[in-house]
Amino acid sequence: MKPAAFVRHVPKTVEEALAILAEVAPQDGRVLAGGQSLVPIMAFRMARPAHLVDINEVAGLDRLAVDGGKLVIGARVRHAAFHKSVADGPLGKLLAYVVRHIAHYPIRMRGTFCGSLAHADPASEWCLVAATLGAEIVARSKRGTRTIAAADFFQGIMSTALAENELLTEARLPLLAADAKFGFYEFNRRAGDFAMAAALATYRLVDGKIAEPRIGVGGAEAQPRRIAQAEATLAGQAPGDAAFRAAAEAAAKAIDPLEDIQTSGEYRRDLVRAVVRRALEHSA
């Protein structure tokens, strides 16, 4: 369980990192941030990058600030940064609640928010947050900078819209309205394991009725996404058991479930039904 040989590059600036990436990406070069996903698969030799562009010393990528109504999260911001609220209002609380579900404490000390997005594990909590809240993802290369919407970014199991020579420099999460409600629930076999299904719900109450609902489901399909059918059942309803159950049922029906030797599609739907309802109950 020793990785295959690789060359580690340690750029100090984004420009330097992009220049190296442009050069080594065609030779199986990969970006290394927290390393909590990449390094284990390198140890198994399931990944054998010939070059690692280690961004841990790149200046400016540790930015974590509210700017223009958005929370800007730089590529070096660790999961642990979210243990306490990083933004006023519900978004900071939401992130502080969700982060406790990510693996275990030592992993949260090293792993990064943006690294999770770039890795795009279907069960990732941050990918679910990004998809549900409509994050903007900033990708830079020597040729320029582009901003990708979360809905376009996740393209399948560990597959994203990032090109091999692009560095995910930051993610931007829109702040939630001051009166927004949120709820999160994830199901796993043991504490800290990857979610077998997870749901994130946000909405506002206008005259006692649900408005602007967002229901995201992760871990159940190849990529996390908002479930429009579940959102439609909620909009305009009074929050409560009947509305939550209807939304959960709609989500369970709508998904295209991941299946494996242990987990049938039927079971995955059972889980989605449970996590969506519980996320909504958590929000209330």
Binding site: R190, A191, G192, D260, I261
Partner: peptide, 23 residues
């Protein structure tokens, strides 16, 4: 867990699950 070809699907501690202190 073996698949029908005799390949092991639970070859890491992410797939083979001993209890942790939480459990």
């Amino acid at each position: 867990i073996y698949d029908e070809t005799g390949n092991i699907l639970s070859s890491t501690l992410a797939d083979y699950l001993p209890p942790t202190a939480h459990e």
